[in-house]
Nucleic acid binder design. Structure first.
Length: 566
RNA sequence: GGAACGGUAGCUCAACUGGAUAGAGCAUCGGUCUUCUAAACCGAGGGUUGUGGGUUCGACCCCCACUCGUUCCA
């Protein structure tokens, strides 16, 4: 950023009629390093100056202040700027080494509150691979937002309310005493409850009274019946314990688990508001909010049978969060199938007169398929998230046994690498792309993967252990040599990547940055002997330390651990 | 029927705001471990960016039409 300003300032002297900000706007970063570090295209001046861009470029370069650059040259219609490698390079390294934790920090948020709603599984069901997306995209976005100085409130909006729990209670009351059910509840309560739920649903075809019993139990729950509440509470606690196991593996922690049940108690307010504003319309016996003028389908608030829908709960949730947290942004990390719905929700809030409707952002992501089909608990084509994580950890353990058998904390590292591979695989692509689940892809450790990044850093750390210098404050950092420039220049672009990731709520920007940095380091490593005992050694070690720091920071933004050895 | 999102190498994906020869990984073929961890590095082949038009000095990117895929719409 600073460097770009420098280029713009240098150009400003040759272009007195242009605003410096407009000049900066035109400056770009060449893809090919041979075209310098920054470039200024002159096409847009051709019309006003009535000259060919090539001519403009060569005229302009004469007037550009070349002070502080390695060189400034004309390349056809472009002016290419080559930065002072030694000077800029040592500045970048110094900045990283001075405060590795905060390198790349930006202040976009000024500590404003941001709520982020993610993961949000349904209770009494196991977490499937499908939940990984919301959970990891949410966590990574939260970390990126913190990095640009927002204050994050992490909310796991549990699906803990609905008629299905009435059915589950009915099933439990009917069959809970059976010996194998008793046994199952001890060994794997969630799994057993799901089985009971499936059983009551299938048998309900022949026994309509089962459906009636489910409805009755849900009604009891709604009216605060003690036994129903106890059962509900028990389902919820067991589920949370089970979820926590996965969240611990993934290193994800929430500030609130207020879910649908919590919001279900607050539905009077939004309904009253909709009535007061005259937004409720009768249509086919139901109460709707008409959104035709937004080219959106109507929002169904009260069904023809008189019951409310999850929409009312979501409105109540939005009101509650605004009041409770005074957020500047309210983020929802939810699948792409809900896109229309979130548009409706935003417009409904707008209609209700809340000027903060546009603080709500749906961070949409492509759904995960299995063999081209939607994953669904009901249809039985789910892959257990915990199983995949454990598979990946086992594989990592085997690799370690093979490649680094003397590693001391092999178990811990296997966890970091195995889980890291799964997380990275989920985050490396643009979030809106749909993903087809393939275990062999998820647990791959070679090429563009999490372990690739971790490995690059582990190698760096290995060198640092051998190099034995901890304090680089007195090292002449200009001595790294020009061959390190590609790497250093890229280190300098970290905060640009973070900014783009934050503005687009897109962790894949950080993942790609980490991959690219790891790759550049691996290339450097393969061609330069860092520990050679010459005058540049200490500077090269400083560079190695800086790379390790930034890799660790980037991995941390993605919620991936960075082992020192692997 | 209406709407949203997508279509780039055999496969999975990049390409920042429209910019220089559309790039990676996997897979395939070939090379590199007595020297800082080969989970790595180097090289080769592989493309009418779904199709047709348009805007522009310049289009994977913007506009129009069509087409295929996914998803949403009591």
């Amino acid at each position: 950023m600073d460097e770009k300003q420098r280029v713009a300032t240098a150009l400003a002297k040759a272009l007195p009629e242009m605003e410096i900000a407009d000049i900066a706007d035109k400056i770009e970063r060449p893809k090919d390093a041979k075209n310098g570090d920054y470039a200024f295209p002159t096409f847009f001046l051709a019309k006003t100056l009535h000259k060919a861009p090539q001519m403009i470029a060569s005229d302009l370069v004469e007037k550009v202040d070349q002070q502080g650059f390695d060189k400034v040259v004309v390349a056809g219609p472009y002016i290419n700027f080559f930065l002072d490698k030694a000077g800029v390079g040592s500045d970048v390294l110094k900045e990283i080494l001075n405060d590795p934790e905060h390198y790349g920090d930006l202040d976009l948020g000024h500590q404003a509150n941001v709520t982020i709603d993610y993961s949000s599984p349904n209770i009494a069901k196991p977490m499937g691979m499908g939940h990984l997306r919301s959970t990891m995209i949410g966590e990574a976005v939260a970390r990126i937002m913190e990095k640009v100085n927002y204050n994050l409130i992490r909310i796991d909006y549990l699906g803990d309310w609905g008629t299905q729990f009435g059915k589950m209670m009915a099933a439990y009351k009917m069959w809970g005493d059976e010996p194998d059910v008793q046994k199952g509840l001890k060994e794997d309560p969630i799994d057993t409850l799901v089985k009971l739920y499936v059983r009551i649903n299938t048998e309900a075809d022949e026994h309509p009274e089962y459906t009636e019993a489910g409805r009755a139990w849900f009604a009891k729950l709604e009216h605060g019946d003690e036994e129903a509440w106890k059962l509900w509470h028990w389902f919820r606690e067991m589920s949370l314990q089970r979820f926590q196991r996965v969240y611990d593996m993934l290193n994800v922690h929430f500030d609130s688990f207020n879910g649908e049940a919590f919001s279900a108690q607050k539905m009077d307010e939004p309904i009253q508001l909709l009535k007061d504003k005259g937004l409720l319309k009768e249509s086919r016996g139901a109460q709707i909010v008409d959104l035709d003028h937004y080219k959106l389908p109507p929002l169904l608030i009260i069904k023809s049978n008189g019951t409310t829908t999850y929409i009312t709960r979501d409105l109540a949730t939005a009101l509650f969060r605004k009041r409770m947290y005074g957020h500047a942004k309210s983020l929802y990390v939810v699948g792409a199938d809900q896109e229309t719905y979130f548009r409706q929700l935003r417009m409904a809030l707008k209609e209700m007169g809340f000027n903060w409707w546009d603080q709500i952002t749906h961070i949409s992501f492509g759904l995960m398929n299995l063999n081209g089909k939607k994953m669904s608990t009901r249809k039985g084509n789910v892959v257990s998230l915990e199983d995949v994580l454990n598979d990946s950890i086992d594989l990592a353990r085997k690799q370690i046994a093979e490649k680094n058998p003397d590693l001391k904390n092999a178990d811990e590292v296997a966890k970091q690498v195995g889980v890291g591979a799964v997380i990275f695989h989920d985050l490396k692509n643009y979030r809106r792309n749909a993903v087809n689940f393939k275990l062999e892809d998820v647990v791959k450790f070679e090429g563009e993967t999490g372990p690739y990044v971790q490995y690059a850093r582990a190698r760096a750390e290995s060198i640092l252990r051998k190099g034995g210098i901890q304090d680089f404050s007195n090292v002449d950092l200009t001595k790294v040599g020009d061959s390190a420039w590609d790497l250093i220049s890229f280190l300098g672009q970290y905060s640009e990547a973070i900014k783009r990731a934050a503005l687009n709520y897109d962790p894949s920007v950080v993942a790609k940055y980490a991959l690219e940095l790891a790759k550049k380091f691996n290339q450097y490593y393969a061609h330069t002997r860092i520990l050679d005992e010459d005058e540049g050694q200490r500077a090269r070690l400083a560079l190695t330390q800086a790379v390790s720091n930034v890799l660790k920071s980037a991995l941390n933004l993605l919620d991936i651990q960075a082992p020192d050895e692997m």
